[in-house]
């Protein structure tokens, strides 16, 4: 156990949590971040884009170098990297979690902005007595309740070192309320929305498979083959029939080394048709689409990283 503890590391810029250094670091970081935010807000508008571009480039550069630079092979926590190449590789590996933490912190601030937008719209609807304000009431009341119940439930569970709350009989008002709202309502409503897709698929498929053109006819035929191949009783009956036909076939001058002279007819099994459609038509087409999408993402990422993409403003 002591050996394991001896290997605990907190990263290059981190210190032991809840220590004096940690508290000082936290305050200094907060002040620096607040200063940076105030400073950025005072920067003239025409300088903001270069600052954002430089920041994006530097952060992206770390990821690019992480991909390009060889990382130390089998480096154990208690070992010192050999030479500059390994040291840089380890440094890059250690920097990535730090960047991810910064991104997480920024995202949580942005979530606050999102919640503010939501609250502003719905409080506005209620105050202005607009139509459909009933939905706004439902949203605000349910969001407030699930936040309060969820938070209290979390606190109670984190204080429950003895694990009493594992047993439902020990649950209090807030635990039961959280369970009803989250597992009893929210997850069930999620499932309801998901199950709606089944009905929507039916109506969309009905429209898509109406035979109006050559393309829709081909689509209809291939869909029929695939659907029949997924229906076990039909597939079994069809394949058995084909196999028996092939076995019982009497072909003159057949090669005696071939056990079933009508072996070619095995290709008419519906599962083989479906596999052919999937393997020779569907998979190559999807891979081609994949190539296009990934190339598009590569080009877009490159433009963003190098600051060439000017976003929607230039459109």
């Amino acid at each position: 156990m002591m050996e394991l503890l001896a290997q605990v590391e907190y990263g290059p810029l981190a210190v032991k949590p809840y220590s004096t250094e940690w508290l000082i670091g936290l305050i200094v970081t907060f002040l620096l971040a607040a200063g940076a935010a105030i400073g950025l807000s005072k920067v003239p508008a025409n300088f903001r884009r270069p600052i954002v571009s430089i920041g994006t480039f530097l952060c992206g550069l770390i990821y690019v170098l992480y991909w390009l630079w060889p990382r130390p092979v089998n480096l154990k926590p208690d070992q010192v990297p050999n030479g500059m190449v390994e040291q840089v590789g380890k440094g890059l590996s250690d920097t990535l979690p730090l960047l991810a933490d910064v991104a997480n912190i920024l995202t949580s601030f942005l979530l606050g902005l999102g919640v503010y937008s939501l609250a502003r719209i719905h409080f506005g609807k209620i105050i202005k007595r607009q139509s459909d304000r009933g939905f706004s009431w439902v949203l605000i009341v349910s969001a407030t309740m699930i936040s309060v119940f969820g938070f209290v439930d979390y606190i109670l569970r984190s204080q429950d070192k003895a694990g009493k709350l594992v047993d439902r009989e020990n649950w209090g008002f807030f635990n039961v309320g959280q369970d009803i709202m989250f597992d009893g309502l929210l997850l069930q409503m999620d499932s309801v929305m998901f199950s709606l897709i089944a009905f929507f698929i039916l109506s969309a498929a009905y429209r898509a498979f109406r035979i109006r053109s050559v393309e829709s006819t081909v689509m209809m035929a291939s869909a029929l083959v695939l659907m029949l191949s997924l229906l076990s009783p039909i597939m079994f009956q069809w394949n058995t029939m084909i196999a028996q036909m092939a076995k019982g076939m009497n072909i003159p001058n057949a090669d005696p080394s071939i056990p079933y002279p009508g072996g070619f007819f095995h290709n008419l099994q519906i599962s083989d048709w479906a596999n052919w459609v999937k393997g020779n038509l569907q998979t190559p087409a999807l891979r081609a689409v994949d190539f296009g999408i990934l190339l598009g993402a590569l080009a877009m990422g490159l433009r963003l990283w190098l600051g060439l993409e000017k976003g929607g403003v230039s459109v």
Binding site: I201, A204, R207, V289, G292, I293, A297
Partner: peptide
């Protein structure tokens, strides 16, 4: 960009951008 969803859009929408047409 999710290729598994493109067929649904093709079935239900008037116009669909397929694959890299989006980019």
């Amino acid at each position: 960009t999710e290729k598994s969803q493109t067929p649904f859009f093709i079935a239900a929408c008037d116009y669909v951008l397929i694959g890299d047409e989006f980019y």
